[in-house]
Design a protein around this nucleic acid. Sequence first.
DNA 1: AGAATAGTGTCTTTCAGACACTATTTG
DNA 2: CAAATAGTGTCTGAAAGACACTATTCT
Lengths: 250, 250
Amino acid sequence: MRDYDPSRYEPAAVTVDIVALTIRDGALQVLLVERGEEPFLGRLALPGGFVRSSRDAKGRVRGETLDAAAARELAEETGLVPGHAALNRVHLEQLATYGAPDRDPRMRVFSVAYLAFGADMPDPVSGGDAAAAGWLPVDRARRLAFDHDAILADGLERARAKLEYTPLATSFVGPEFTISELRGVYAAVWGVEPHAGNFHRKVLSTPGFVVDAGEMTERGGTRGGRRARLYRAGDATLLHPALLRPEGEQ
Amino acid sequence: MRDYDPSRYEPAAVTVDIVALTIRDGALQVLLVERGEEPFLGRLALPGGFVRSSRDAKGRVRGETLDAAAARELAEETGLVPGHAALNRVHLEQLATYGAPDRDPRMRVFSVAYLAFGADMPDPVSGGDAAAAGWLPVDRARRLAFDHDAILADGLERARAKLEYTPLATSFVGPEFTISELRGVYAAVWGVEPHAGNFHRKVLSTPGFVVDAGEMTERGGTRGGRRARLYRAGDATLLHPALLRPEGEQ
DNA sequence: AGAATAGTGTCTTTCAGACACTATTTG
DNA sequence: CAAATAGTGTCTGAAAGACACTATTCT
């Protein structure tokens, strides 16, 4: 199909949808908006919107990249402006593209889904486009609009897998963190609590995962407990050896 | 961006591009077409084309899924019709979507790239849309049209990674194969020859990777050598434990 | 016979997981 | 003090990689 003639084809829309994940109250939560119009009026959906493109005065195609569109949508929905400290620490990556012909009854819509991870993500701003928006624990995010149940499931599986072989977990905590906080990320995302002692030793023995920040927490736990050493994210992009999930059969 | 109005936006085209890989003459090869028109006239490109969609008499959106579009494009380019034995054994999976605003000078084009692996893939049919088409060793596929160099690079990295933890290598060989043939797949894709003895033992000790076909090759190697046992692909979808590449730092 | 390929035995090192232990801090 | 949390020591079994070896079939 080299010799294509675009005008022969039904116009299509391309959107980005964001699976934004954060950890709140020890649980993995996803950012959802309530739809303010048909179809799926009143149902929860992943935040998203159209990729912007246009032509300039000379007829040249202009517009934003997919990554930029995803970052813009995330910023609009959370109220995080570019330059905001927390937004700079958000990890954003492309997940997959969904294009079933009947996924939107109005027209042919292709959705490029993105995965976002961040710590301390703020509550959505009330002035957004959606009727309402907020964070919801992932196990209570069901019956979403369109095919967003499937997109969320794919995003969760990607997140779980990436914790194994990348330092992604450090995106879910602040710039300085304890090993226990990091363990809490794995517990929330995987749904199982790693063995505390083994986890501690393993994280420290994986080169480039974390570096000692040279400080301690001010206090121990509220119900007693030793004070913990603080760490920062290291420079590794892949963990070697990997931290495999218990019972490897995915 | 819940309240979208599609008509406000510049029309976009959505294509699928295929990174089709096979092993020929012991080398990993990729299917390429020569462009028959501008832009990039005469340059090599990945095969691909538009995703088809339309509306029926009642105005409902109709069309093919992304997976179907990819399968159709691959079939058109290789001459493999649906039902062809070799096509049924081809592995096809979505890779990523590319949508930089300037990637096609004519209009805004989003390309959903697919990765295809198969054994004994035929030479492309001469009656295809492209000026010419053929298989080329991946290390000689350079300076492709559009952003296809980057797409090919991403596809190769995905293929290399998936050999580690999935039985994907069995897609590159026939229905019955020897452990040596399987080792040849790893050697061609990774660019390093795994240790023959360790590889043999490891493949057989990974549950569900291969099953004994109960037969032997008719002859040994052409320059001497023992006859080899034949195996078929097992039922595992993930390899556990994984076959890691030598020197894990990707 | 000698070369080439298939397949096995065995040793060392690394790492995951289990378990028990020490260290420190809070109420 | 007891309870709670941080962090360490040590053992076992699984697995990777190195190396040497046996088994079989070709010219």
